[in-house]
Design a protein around this nucleic acid. Structure first.
Lengths: 214, 214
DNA sequence: GTTTGTCGAGACTGCTAGTCTTGTCAAGTG
DNA sequence: CACTTGACAAGACTAGCAGTCTCGACAAAC
């Protein structure tokens, strides 16, 4: 997902993806890369300045100067387009920092995550995506992979710390991960409390102290 | 909200609520209490065995044997009906236990909360409600009050503990609250990890250790 | 130049929230 | 009892949106 290859998200038999190996190699008109990019860009832009308002396929197609069918030729659902548009720009290999000290690594990870929610474009995109995922099971599934990637990165960061003895041997890493992302999403979606540097700092400290060795 | 009085959720000038004091006291046919209860019951039942599937107003009205207009006469939106149906049965005064020991109180609170997500009826109702809230700003606002009530109860429980010296003086109570509800909702909605008694136990311990005095 | 697949455009279906209409029924009022 | 007023059930209607289908044009291979 992302980049120039349409690659229409998981489990979708993409009519363009290399065309089934046997039989004809490929005849007919080739796909229009410009249109492909235009769709992704349009989706991202609409996502960015939508702040909560649902983004419609019609709007994406119109903004991209493209027929609706062209959108559905390459993506299986609206959600797939939106997620593709987001991940197109987001770092795909979310790799936690590795400074050799758990506190530093964890704090950097948490602070970066929290900070991303302050950038208004990312924020509205993420918010809209979350809202869409609530109604679209297909997108919800795609989001699972998205969130799972991030959880894994964080878990490995913690795992390294535990191996160095900075966390108790029996610390529940998955629970720590979920405390980070739980607080993040809970505050992000409800908006009742800030996701500022102070919160990142205090959360980091509480997590390490609460699960430390000794 | 809840109980026998329609009371059509916050900020809605309920056409029945006592009828404006001045002018006529009340003429015409009285509201049908049976229909009112039938709507609430129908909503709750549909919510309970919907598991994610959206609950439509048509379905509620049909199940209750009531005209759609009757629903809209007493509630301003679908979300209001759903939330009213849920809070109708849920304990309105969510009061945390007060045993005199933070660990006991907090563990009971967390375990109860987590456990509620295991009852299939509550679970599907809550899940559907969360999904609906994502698309319906009106409902989202109502949910804010719902979640705020619970956060306050938890916060007070923690506050008592802090006064007894079981938490550091500078512990960030709001952050602890959000760690509990963050983990809860994050796991509840994503379903990637369990909300079992073990998780409740470990979370409790981590929170107290991580924010303890000394 | 024929075949095959893509393109833009937009009509169309199906679903649902919320409104409006209609005819009926119940509870007070004179 | 007649009349007024508001609640009621039923259901037609509007509006918005996802996803499908159709159509005529176009581009790449053979």
């Amino acid at each position: 997902m992302s980049g120039t290859e349409p690659q229409a998200a998981q489990g979708h038999d993409d009519p363009a993806a290399e065309q089934a190996p046997p039989g004809r190699p490929h005849t007919g008109r080739r796909r229009n890369e410009a249109a492909h990019r235009a769709i992704l860009d349009a989706a991202l832009n609409l996502l960015a300045d939508s702040d909560g308002t649902p983004v419609t396929i019609d709007a994406i197609a119109r903004t991209a100067g493209v027929g609706k069918q062209t959108v559905y030729r390459w993506w299986p659902s609206k959600g797939a387009v939106l997620l593709d548009a987001l991940t197109d720009r987001a770092d795909q290999d979310v790799r936690g920092p590795d400074t050799g000290t758990l506190r530093t690594d964890l704090h950097a990870f948490v602070a970066t995550t929290f900070d991303a929610a302050q950038r208004s474009t990312t924020a509205s995109a993420l918010r809209t995506l979350a809202r869409e995922a609530a109604r679209d099971p297909h997108l919800a599934e795609l989001m699972q992979t998205f969130t799972a990637t991030r959880r894994t990165a964080l878990r490995e960061l913690l795992s390294r710390g535990r191996e160095r003895g900075e966390l108790a041997d029996d610390a529940d890493l998955d629970l720590i991960v979920d405390q980070v992302y739980g607080v993040f999403w809970y505050r992000f979606l409800l908006g009742h409390a800030p996701l500022d540097p102070g919160a990142a700092e205090r959360l980091t400290d509480a997590l390490i102290t609460g699960n430390g060795s000794a």
